[in-house]
Design a protein around this nucleic acid. Structure first.
Lengths: 217, 217
DNA sequence: GTCTATACGATGATAGAC
DNA sequence: GTCTATCATCGTATAGAC
């Protein structure tokens, strides 16, 4: 990835780590594999990042922060448009505001797909370290989305909206995991559901599913 | 756990491994911790199981198989009852047939909760090894549930029912993860949603959410 | 400030004696 | 089946060169 030797060490480590973590998983990727891929010394990781856990945290934050900013902006836009028309915001519009940026990232480039895999691994992390990062980074935009959803569903209790919202976001996360996973669910693959060209269709179905759950009762 | 020295080595290892994996996670639990807890020699793990991954696979299968059998039986019972009344099976009844055994296990005993955590870690596994086990073990009961759901939703295409079904089961899995996770989502905890005494309420909300998604449109 | 060479303790795995 | 001894590899830490 680095074009020349002047490309900063930190960036080289972050780039290699992002790709390798996404490809092989966190615990299966050794710091030695990362530093040799990046063409830097092993000790550079601990000098620049302190630990492997802090490294993956920064890999994660580097791309998650802009993604969450886009999400917040999108939600704000939906709210403004609704205000302008004197209506309540629509549940599906709010869901799309949150979900679209992730799917766009997943569809645009191989690097995007690679990072999506890392996000998903973070959500689902076995040992808790990564998932804490994910949750921390998502709380601000989840708060914004919660407020917006309460306006979209004024007859539901805020506390209930929150439960449904987290349920819906969990659904999105684990379906992204299923769809992008290397582990094949035969029931899925037989029907070509995981094909990248079908992601747009799947996104629509996913939003329909979650919206129905949000609005139920 | 072992009452005397005649308790077989394999069982002792499985018992200790199940508890420790659930408590601390897979990669954070060393074979040395397991064997010393079980009172057996380190090399016994590799003799009896071949590897750490195969050990966790067998820990998982030991309790997952009976759980899936109960699920299949419950689904069959719902179908029979519906046949007897000349009706279509209800979506919520089928969902409960699948979900109830898991929640019961989670509520009954500390060991049950401990195993639920292991299941959840398996679903969400970062490196793919565990999640493959989970998917493989769930395919038969998912096939049964899919057939049943097609009868409950005769106007939906089977392919679409499958997508929704996997979506719903993913929702259940990741919400179980959230609810039983040690990693606290502040938005959640503030409202005491994760309290064990509230699991019954949460289960009801979860089924409502998934049923709405299954039946939508 | 950056980077390198090198070493330390712990881990999963294995070979061979009993 | 069980045990001891040993291995390569891991994340981490540090002393010192540029």
């Amino acid at each position: 990835m680095p074009e020349n030797d002047h490309y900063p060490t930190m960036q080289r480590i972050l780039d290699s780590a992002e790709r390798l973590f996404a490809e092989k998983g966190y615990s299966r990727t050794s710091l030695r594999a990362i530093t040799s891929d990046a063409g830097v010394n092993l000790a550079a990781v601990n000098y620049h990042f302190g630990s492997k856990e802090e490294l993956v945290r920064q890999v994660f934050q580097r791309k998650m922060a802009p993604l969450n900013r886009i999400r917040s902006d999108n939600i704000e836009q939906v709210l403004e448009q609704a205000r302008g028309m004197g209506r309540r915001p629509a549940v599906k519009d709010l869901l799309r505001a949150f979900i679209d940026p992730t799917f766009e990232l997943a569809l645009e480039t191989p690097e995007g797909r690679s990072f999506i895999k890392l996000i998903i691994r973070s959500i689902a992390d076995t040992d808790g370290t990564l998932s804490r990062n994910f949750i921390e980074s998502a709380i601000p935009v989840l708060t914004v989305l919660h407020e917006a959803m309460c306006r979209a569903l004024p007859t539901h209790e805020p506390r209930d909206v929150l439960f449904r919202l987290v349920t819906g976001m969990s659904t999105m996360g684990s379906m992204l995991m299923r769809l992008s996973s290397d582990t094949t669910l035969p029931l899925f693959d037989e029907q070509g559901i995981k094909d990248f060209r079908q992601w747009a269709t799947n996104k629509g179905k996913l939003i329909d599913f979650i919206a129905a759950g949000m609005e139920a009762e």
